[in-house]
Amino acid sequence: MTLDETDRALLRLLQIYAAQPTGRLGDKLGLSQPATWRRIRRLQDAGVIAGQRLTLDAEKLGFGVTVFLGVKLATKGRVSLEDFERAVSAIAEVQSVEHVLGLYDYRLRVVARDLADFERVLRRRIMTMRGVGNVEANIMLSEEKLAGPL
């Protein structure tokens, strides 16, 4: 799919103002509401827009600890990557699962209410999973930059 400048401008606006009505977005771009809606629909159908999400403040919801875990699988031949990904993705506290190249096989972002809650998740849910070998935890102290527009 070829994107023109209007498509790119629309995508920039949607990343910042995703909840805005299409008429208001169209006003910013000099388009009518139906034309804006058609462009959004075309971008969705082409897979350029993969979805919409609401960003919540984890700390205000009682999740005061964020930990990044490096996980090295003990034996890649005995547990498939897909099985590990499926199992770890089922843990509610695991917010993201990234297959990476380097010292560890996976990088997980885990949220917990406090350190005791994180220890419970680590000991009872993650360390007991089949195939988990070495794990390294890095506790997030602060987050300086949030994901922004592409």
Rank of each mutant, 00 (worst) to 15 (best):
A19S: 11
V121N: 02
K60L: 14
L31K: 10
L29H: 01
E5A: 12
D57S: 05
K28Y: 05
V132S: 07
R41I: 10
M127E: 14
E82C: 01
Y106T: 09
R8T: 08
S142T: 12
G47L: 12
Y106V: 10
Y104H: 07
D7Q: 02
L13N: 09
R39H: 08
L103E: 15
G47D: 13
E136A: 14
P21I: 04
T75A: 13
E136I: 14
D114F: 05
F84L: 05
A87V: 03
L10W: 02
L101E: 07
T36D: 00
V121P: 03
V110K: 02
A18V: 00
I16D: 05
D117P: 06
F118H: 05
L11W: 01
M129P: 02
Q33N: 00
V67C: 06
I40Q: 10
E143V: 04
R78M: 14
R24G: 03
R24Y: 05
L146V: 01
L11I: 01
R38K: 13
D57T: 04
I126Y: 04
L115M: 15
A92M: 03
G26L: 08
Q95K: 14
D117C: 04
E82G: 05
V48Y: 08
V110L: 04
F118S: 06
D4H: 04
Q95M: 08
L10H: 05
M1S: 11
V97T: 09
L31G: 06
G23K: 03
V100M: 09
E119N: 13
Q95Y: 05
R38D: 13
G131I: 10
S32N: 06
D114T: 07
A147T: 02
Q95C: 06
M127D: 09
N134E: 14
Q52P: 00
E85C: 01
V65L: 15
